[in-house]
């Protein structure tokens, strides 16, 4: 337990440093808020265009779809704030040998790689996504119960594990492929699956993205908790698969780390 408290303290120090740095570059902070907002508007515009032509997609009406898309955005932005900035730097650290400095520090390499950088800007967009969720719920005339709200927030946090697992696994390819910048494109491409209503999928696609890479559960399960009745089976399935995915990705990272050869002098 004291070990986890030690890690938590380290993380809080990094968080404080990130806030100081973000406040030093305020224009950059607002620029990134606008960029992320533009991508969210793009997703909502897509929903708007589709529902101009149909009333329902796989049983999801316009506002239910907005809850799904905004929930996905909420999870993604929290992930982008706390874990993604560190992970995306791994290919560069491996190529330049900068990973040496992290390996010498008295903390687990995976923890240091994952938390070495933080960005506060995406949290503003997470807030906007939450407002969109609430506004869509209002349009659906749904007032979530207290237990549904807490379950939703808990599942949003669980969704972070899936994001984390996928990106950690992808950036770990850098131990085999020297230039692995494309993995970020891979992350964004694959995560488009999370915006699909699960009912729209079938066959091998549904099996793979439910059990192997549980992307179809990341936003679907929390959104369903808010707009439909809460079922325990998908929740348990989601928690089980997200934890397994994170553990497997961690194993893959350490497997790659064994191949690491310092590139510095």
């Amino acid at each position: 337990m004291p070990y986890f408290i030690h890690l938590l303290k380290l993380w809080l120090i990094q968080l404080r440093y990130a806030i100081t740095r973000e406040l030093a570059f305020r224009a950059n902070f607002f620029a990134w808020v606008i960029v992320e907002l533009a991508w969210f508007v793009l997703q909502l515009a897509f929903v708007g265009v589709v529902y101009q032509h149909v009333d329902s997609v796989a049983g999801w009406n316009r506002y239910e779809m907005i809850v799904l898309v905004a929930t996905n955005q909420l999870i993604q932005q929290i992930f982008t704030a706390f874990l993604m900035p560190g992970l995306v730097k791994l290919p560069d650290l491996v190529r330049t040998g900068g990973l040496d400095f992290l390996l010498l520090k008295p903390a687990p390499p995976q923890f240091l790689v994952s938390t070495s950088s933080l960005e506060i800007g995406p949290l503003a967009n997470a807030g906007i996504a939450l407002i969109v969720v609430l506004s869509a719920l209002h349009s659906l005339a749904i007032t979530p119960t207290l237990s549904a709200t807490f379950t939703y927030l808990f599942l949003v946090l669980a969704g972070l594990f899936v994001h984390y697992a996928l990106l950690l696994a992808l950036v770990s390819f850098t131990f085999w492929i020297v230039q692995a910048e494309s993995v970020l494109l891979g992350y964004y491409s694959i995560f488009q699956v999370a915006r699909l209503p699960r009912e729209a999928t079938r066959g091998w696609f549904r099996v793979i993205f439910t059990f192997a890479i549980p992307l179809l559960l990341v936003a679907n399960v929390p959104a369903s908790v808010l707009i439909r009745n809460m079922h325990i089976t998908p929740i348990l399935l989601f928690l089980g698969t997200s934890l397994s995915a994170a553990l497997l990705a961690s194993l893959f990272f350490y497997l790659g780390l064994r191949r690491y050869q310092s590139a510095s002098s």
């Binding site: 492929i177 230039q179 910048e181 494109l185 891979g186």
Partner: peptide, 10 residues
């Protein structure tokens, strides 16, 4: 390999 991955992901 970077390009192949990029093409696959696209």
């Amino acid at each position: 390999w970077n390009y192949l991955l990029r093409a696959l992901f696209s």
